[in-house]
């Protein structure tokens, strides 16, 4: 089911993210998703996240769909040229997967195959445009598709706490012009920044899901602060994680922080997207504490 239908009904849309394994045994992932994520609207499947080779996003989406969940097919432009991307979009349509999220993707040098060729034949904007073309029944080569064209809910990402916010907003606008119908954001730890971002993003008239990462421990947030673009965990939050080691280790502190951020930002956005990074089991607690479900 297209998540855009829920946005237009005015629902607060909840999604979470799973990362396929480095291998083809997927039973564990499916079981976990069924147990912890079946109550939410949609489940994103990452596409060789951080340029680390894994099981494919499309195949994992199909398995999730067969298990009764509603997958969002993440596509990056790092590993495939426009022919392969368009072809995979048709494959997704054939499987009945109708939610996609278009990203440029991290550079190959950041992953576990640093010598691989970075493709970037398309980027997030031109990929969205390619999808729109397919929906109109033509491919990027200008050739007509046979039969009824596919139809997707087209998503994109934006980084609301980026230190290049103006350039990010300009890119967001280009994505909207190219056909983006909803946005998921990079993880937010600074609600004030998110709220002032939403003030500016409102003009584009597209729904935005607040990005959430459940902070696991001090090491993790320090790592993100030093290495992950668009993420900044403020000092008082780091102190909070430090204060009670046992509580933090049990995930209680992280869940509290995540739920608090959601509550604070909820009036300004149209949904939430949780990147649990292995802590899928904590997702129900976060949503409950945030008063969502």
């Amino acid at each position: 089911m297209k998540i855009t239908e829920l946005f237009s009904r005015g629902e607060f849309v909840v999604s979470a993210e799973v990362g396929p394994p480095k291998g083809f045994h997927i039973e564990g992932l499916i079981e976990e998703a069924k147990e912890y994520l079946s109550g939410i609207t949609a489940v994103n499947v990452t596409d060789n996240q951080s340029s680390v080779m894994r099981l494919g996003s499309l195949a994992t989406c199909k398995a999730l769909k067969d298990a009764g969940l509603n997958p969002i097919f993440q596509m990056t432009c790092r590993d495939r040229n426009r022919i392969a991307l368009e072809s995979d979009l048709l494959s997704a349509a054939m499987f009945g997967i109708d939610n996609i999220l278009c990203l440029t993707g991290d550079h190959t040098k950041l992953g576990d195959h640093p010598g691989a060729k970075p493709v970037f034949d398309l980027d997030s904007v031109s990929l969205l445009y390619a999808v729109k073309q397919l929906e109109a029944g033509v491919d990027l080569g200008g050739n007509e598709l046979v039969g009824e064209p596919p139809k997707f809910a087209k998503g994109a990402v934006v980084s609301p706490c980026s230190d290049s916010l103006d350039a990010q907003l300009a890119k967001m606008e280009r994505k909207v012009l190219a056909g983006a119908e909803y946005f998921q954001t990079q993880a937010v730890f600074e609600p004030e920044k998110f709220i002032s971002f939403m003030e500016k993003a409102k003009q584009f008239g597209v729904p935005v899901q607040l990005g959430i990462i459940i902070p696991k421990n001090v090491g993790m947030v320090r790592y993100m602060n030093a290495n992950v673009a668009g993420i900044h965990v403020p000092d008082d939050m780091i102190e909070e994680l430090k204060a009670d080691k046992e509580k933090t280790k049990a995930g209680i502190t992280g869940v509290e922080i995540a739920a608090r951020i959601i509550k604070e930002c909820r009036p300004y956005c149209q949904g939430v997207h949780i990147m649990a990074l292995g802590w899928e089991s904590k997702v129900p607690a976060v949503l409950k504490q945030a008063g969502i479900c």
Binding site: D106, D123, R174
Partner: peptide, 27 residues
Amino acid sequence: SKSLVNGQCGGSKDGKCEVDPNMECGW
């Protein structure tokens, strides 16, 4: 670094490129 022609990717941090912290982000 990615020869992007439609704008900045999400990887720029402190104005530097995600691939090389010594290189200013082109976008």
